[in-house]
Amino acid sequence: MIRLVGPVWLSPEDHAVVAAAGDRLVPGSAETGVADYVDTLLGAFEFDPPRIWAGGPFSGRHGGEAGFDSFLALGAVEELAWRTRIEGSRGLPEREFNGPVRGLQEEYRDGLASLGTDFATLSPEEQDARLGAVPEFKALLYRHACEGMYGDPVYGGNRGGAGWAAIGFAGDVQPRGWTAVEMRPPAASEDGRPPAASEDGHA
């Protein structure tokens, strides 16, 4: 995918804090780009079309033409919903039909301020304590770390499919798919059961 140089919404300092905090919650996620994932989501509207929905039908990794890079345009109501979700309602009547909505950008601004700019330099115990002090932000970061680690690489995280590789997940498989033979474990014995699973969880 095309990546601009440096973050689009997070400051470089905040980017480092997101990476460190994300890594504490989902180990390995910093290296696979969790901060880029969060940055791309918070800055989705810096792109045209916004980086909300990747294109289709294929990534090109398993045949077919690569289409995920061509993000899809949002309709009017969808843009309203996503801008509200990301930017907050900002007192705009068209976004406040059910009252004010706090946006993700604000959650991050406040949450990162609580974690502190020195977060990345702290010991794991100190990091855990700071995260524990902001349980709601921790939960948000955690969800985003999971999304960044195991979502499609086109959204900024899971660089090169590293998150998937670490757990033996093939990711998208179209248009190749799986054959009927591949739907069964190679080592299946007579009664259909594989021998006991090996250490890494693979039969």
Binding site: G56, F58, G67, F68, E78, A81, E147, G151, D152, Q174
Partner: peptide, 25 residues
């Protein structure tokens, strides 16, 4: 077909691609 469907967990499972977005509706 428009070719917009894909094996993409974020788009379908977390980002309301096929709608309705619960914030709007």
């Amino acid at each position: 077909p428009k070719g917009e469907f894909s094996n993409d967990e974020l788009k379908f499972g977390f980002r309301h691609f096929l709608g309705p977005d619960p914030l709007a509706e």
